[in-house]
Simulated assay, not measured.
Amino acid sequence: MLRVAVVGASGYIGGELLRLLIGHPRVEVTVATSNRFAGKRVDGPHPNLRGATDLTFVANDRLAEAEGSFDVLFLATPHKETMGRMPEFLGLAEQVIDLSGDFRLRDPQVYEHHYGTPHTAPELIPTFTTGLPEWHRKEIRESDRISVPGCMATAGILALRPLSEAGLLTGGIQVDARTGSSGSGISAGSSNIHAERSGAMRIFAPNSHRHQAEITQSTGLPVSMTATGVEAVRGVQVLCRVQLTEGTDERALRRAYREAYADERFVRVVAQKRGLYRLPEPKILSGSNFCDVGFSVGDEPGTAVVVGALDNLVKGGSGNAVQCLNIRQGWPESLGLEFTGLHPN
């Protein structure tokens, strides 16, 4: 059994990591850290884990005392804090899978622009591999340091990159992203309480959301991104308005997707003419590691709307991380990730 630790395990992403890893047939979770809940049972803040584990949280500063008790370290720690502690983390485990935003962007200046602070460990950035299996599988197989992309970035990249790789897009891309309340994290504050969130469609990033830099980095095309919080708890949906190269039609778009994702277990092309769910819908993906992608060609010649949807806590975070773990260990990619989602939900 591979022994793993989850740092920052009391939040939503940390809880999903625990759920997936505790149920993984080849993994043993030996350490879960939380300063707030140190000494208390994991199934307190994560009641869905009742009966599944007897783990108790340890304080973050006691992680070093557990040295040698785990092989892989999963980081569900805050942006900006993670980079400062990364040298410590790298000394504690052979493999580190980071779910913070601190090592996603290749350019420290781009990081500073979007996160509002200088990067304190720029020399470590090139040592991390992007944890998006569909486009970085070869590198993940050989990497001991993996940085999992953001949830909206993952949906946008998986929806757009097949088209950019095929040379079917031109000009800038406008991304309209919607996310459920869990995307704000467990400590989001008063703006995320039910009285403020219920019934609201709050545009919390009218422009320049930080995930746009990840999409630009992956596609090579300029991206302008708006993000809106909707009443759902889970889920991300991105609508990407694109300009098509001359002569690109619906058949060319469908062919690009099929060629890119024909052998991908967790990406499905959903672009149907009829039916209740004709385009990607995050509601039916809750709890699953799938990302659905699709498109609709516009009435105006040379335009289309490209759509991506996923569960922000699974394929947009913890599930992607476990998929990377499976690849790195040479295991089947779907191990521990077989759940298909619910309908109705």
Rank of each mutant, 00 (worst) to 15 (best):
A256P: 00
P280D: 09
S224V: 05
D263K: 14
A227E: 09
V233P: 02
Q237N: 12
R265N: 11
A262C: 09
R278K: 15
A227L: 14
R251D: 03
E264N: 12
N289G: 14
S296V: 06
V230K: 04
L244V: 07
P301H: 07
R255Q: 03
C291W: 05
P280N: 11
D292M: 14
R255P: 00
F290N: 13
E281A: 12
G294A: 12
L239K: 03
S288Q: 07
V267R: 04
S224Y: 07
R255C: 03
F266K: 05
C240Q: 03
G235L: 07
S286W: 10
L276A: 14
G235A: 07
R241V: 00
I284C: 01
A232K: 00
A256C: 00
R258W: 12
A260P: 11
L285H: 14
R268I: 01
R258Q: 14
T248G: 01
Q272C: 10
V270S: 02
V242Y: 01
E264F: 09
E300K: 02
A260E: 12
V230G: 02
T248I: 00
F266V: 07
L253F: 00
G294S: 12
T226C: 10
V238L: 01
G294N: 13
T245C: 07
C291L: 06
L285M: 13
V270I: 10
V238F: 03
R265G: 09
E281H: 09
V223W: 02
D249S: 04
M225F: 03
D292I: 06
C291E: 06
R251A: 12
N289T: 13
A252D: 05
Y277R: 14
V233R: 00
R255N: 00
T226I: 11
P282L: 05
V230T: 02
Y277S: 10
E259M: 10
T245S: 09
G294T: 08
L221A: 01
F290A: 11
G247R: 03
A227W: 02
A260H: 13
